[in-house]
């Protein structure tokens, strides 16, 4: 068990964003998080990466209590993330962006080593043609790849992907999914927030469903797509759910 959250709760003013959510994630698996908009998925990511502190509950990384660890420390531990709305370091080039990830991640590389790692990662995600382009000038698809590359350069043990497939065309989606599967094969645990149903059903080993800040279901993709409550809250159409089961 690589990451565990127990009874996490966070509210903003009167709004409870995350309400008593608990989860356990096994190493080297792909853990999917789905739910309607506003369900608290990104907030949960923010708690895991240390941007927000939960008001209640605890977070454990390999049995170590990291609930109060500052943001940068989580990267040093090996927790990396991409953001739903990408955050490129605009005036730096692609290679410089990725080197930042390499320099300050788990292994704390020096510049020379970081450059090597960065080159490898850039090739891996398919950004080699854009290596010296300023990050701010990339299109959305490439920016998303950059976001992923930077997180990978951290050499993390856990990778949090926040809607990394959003805005991509079907071909790009397939290509990104392949990359994600390869990342899993390299031994990295992946936690994915996604809206693209067929993609996340296909890729995940285990799925958790959030609605209005609460966990309403968890299980294998098969179990989730058969779950009545999930269908009502999210999938809407039972016929669609059947299709999805067939798609797996």
């Amino acid at each position: 068990m690589i990451l565990k959250g127990t009874n996490l709760k966070l509210s903003f003013g009167g709004l409870v964003a995350v309400n008593n959510v608990s989860f356990e994630i096994e190493e080297k698996t792909i853990f999917g998080i789905i739910g309607p908009n506003g369900a608290g998925k990104t907030t949960l990511f923010n708690i895991i990466s240390g941007v927000y502190k939960p008001q209640e509950g605890k977070l454990f990384f390999k049995d170590k209590d990291i609930t109060n660890f500052p943001t940068y420390k989580r990267a040093r531990l090996g927790i990396a993330r991409t953001h739903q709305i990408v955050k490129p370091l605009s005036e730096l080039t692609v290679i410089e962006n990725v080197m930042v990830g390499a320099c300050f991640g788990k292994k704390n590389y020096n510049l020379k080593q970081a450059q090597k790692v960065a080159l490898d990662v850039i090739n891996f995600v398919g950004l080699s043609t854009k290596m010296f382009t300023q990050a701010g000038q990339l299109n959305v698809a490439f920016k998303k790849r950059l976001e992923l590359a930077r997180a990978l350069a951290n050499e993390p043990e856990i990778l949090l992907l926040d809607e990394v497939l959003a805005g991509l065309n079907p071909k790009e989606v397939d290509s990104m999914l392949n990359v994600i599967l390869k990342i899993k094969q390299n031994g990295i645990t992946i936690i994915m927030i996604e809206h693209l149903m067929h993609a996340i059903m296909k890729a995940s080993d285990y799925i958790m469903v959030l609605d209005s800040g609460e966990k309403i279901a968890q299980g294998s993709p098969q179990e989730i797509s058969n779950n009545q409550r999930v269908i009502e809250a999210y999938l809407g159409d039972p016929k669609l759910a059947m299709q999805l089961v067939g798609a797996k």
């Binding site: 990466s49 240390g50 941007v51 500052p70 943001t71 940068y72 989580r74 990267a75 040093r76 990396a80 993330r81 953001h83 955050k87 370091l89 930042v100 990830g101 300050f104 991640g105 930077r150 951290n154």
Partner: peptide, 9 residues
Amino acid sequence: DASAVLGIK
């Protein structure tokens, strides 16, 4: 914020 997430103190 991205810098902190990337591990910079």
